[in-house]
């Protein structure tokens, strides 16, 4: 381990208090061109990510969580995907405006990615050691031997025993949880400022899930990096995140401090999501869990109305005619809704 690395570990974690965001995304719009017309997958997403902060991005399948994050590094297949507008500032550089060569220097070096399915996300015919040393050699210019030493240290760091001897192994020789640890080690190889974790625990069973959560929390404390955590599991977010962005139909419908979100959920969608969670106490046996009627939107229509309106119990005329923008409720809580759920009346225009 280098001296610089040791320094970083004893450094106190910079909390969300430091106000200059590491990553600042504005008005991101991504479309997919399909034979049946354009699919508006991401419609004007924006967020700030501060150093050491963990932003939970919550939403159901197809809400645009992954597409948003993949758009930032242009990791979507283009075509059919196209980024229509937006800005993503990382260190004062707009990622969306970078040419492919410059973007490569961001991918894996400044922004690390962890994907959902660790089996499919690792190359089956290349050894784990080879795949781990790739970013080290590409971005840090390490020699083969130095990269190998570093790779072993990385595997050790994510809790893989006998790391040195496992470098020559192939992904199928690891268990599911171990594979995800390899993915994490790979994403962290070049000490990225931002880590994007796209449902990293969804494919794992509950015990392993808890281990991976612990591991990422520890690494975050040690390295002080900012994390975007994409999930559809509100329970995971509650225990992990500093701030939460709730997405629906390719839009952010609510953005808040984690405490504030759970204490005072504003958007009808968020409220129904929280009601749909099983409770350990309180709920009587045999009681059915609340569900949200209707289907998620297909996103073929341009976003000219509230995407949740067709499923919303409180929807009124305006909801079908105008798309609400995020507006502050309190200092740390924003919601995009024409209806004031707490007061039970439409918001003043």
């Amino acid at each position: 381990m280098t001296a610089a690395e040791e320094d970083r570990q004893v450094e106190p974690v910079a909390g969300p208090a430091s106000r200059q965001p590491v990553l600042s995304v504005r008005d991101l719009r991504t479309r997919f061109r399909t034979p049946d017309g354009a699919v508006h997958a991401v419609n004007g997403i924006g967020f700030d990510l501060h150093e050491g902060e963990l932003l939970g991005v919550v939403g159901e399948s197809g809400s645009g969580k992954s597409v948003t994050m993949l758009s930032l590094l242009k990791l979507l297949p283009m075509p059919p995907a196209e980024i229509v507008s937006g800005q993503a500032l990382l260190d004062g550089e707009d990622l969306l405006a970078l040419d492919p060569a410059r973007l490569r220097h961001v991918r894996g070096a400044k922004v690390g990615f962890i994907f959902q399915d660790p089996m499919a996300s690792l190359n089956p015919v290349l050894s784990v050691g080879y795949q781990l040393t790739e970013p080290l050699r590409t971005h840090l210019g390490l020699s083969r031997r130095a990269a190998r030493r570093r790779a072993a240290a990385l595997l050790e760091g994510v809790g893989i025993p006998a790391a040195d001897s496992r470098l020559g192994d192939f992904p199928h020789q690891f268990s599911g949880g171990m594979r995800q640890r390899v993915m994490i080690a790979m994403a962290l190889a070049c000490d990225p400022k931002v880590l994007i974790a796209d449902e990293p625990t969804t494919a794992l069973d509950a015990t392993i899930q808890a281990q991976i959560l612990d591991l990422l929390q520890r690494l975050r404390r040690e390295r002080g990096m900012a994390i975007v955590w994409i999930t559809h599991d509100l329970g995971v977010v509650a225990g992990l995140a500093d701030r939460v962005m709730v997405m629906y139909g390719g839009q952010a419908v609510e953005r808040a401090d984690v405490r504030s979100l759970y204490a005072r959920p504003q958007h009808p969608y968020t409220r129904s999501l929280l009601r749909a969670l099983p409770k350990i106490e309180g709920g009587s046996r045999g009681e059915r869990l609340a569900s949200i009627p209707g289907q998620p939107p297909t996103l073929v229509r341009a976003p000219d109305a509230c995407p949740f309106a067709p499923r919303c119990a409180h929807a009124f005329a305006r909801c079908h005619a105008e798309n609400p923008a995020l507006a502050a409720v309190t200092e740390s809580h924003e919601v995009a809704c024409w209806y004031d759920a707490e007061a039970g009346v439409p918001r003043a225009a």
Partner: peptide, 23 residues
Amino acid sequence: DYVRTARAKGLRERVVLFIHVLR
């Protein structure tokens, strides 16, 4: 998916194609 991972690591397209995909 592993192709996306390779790109997310910042590898050149040439490397992605000739090492990851071709193998």
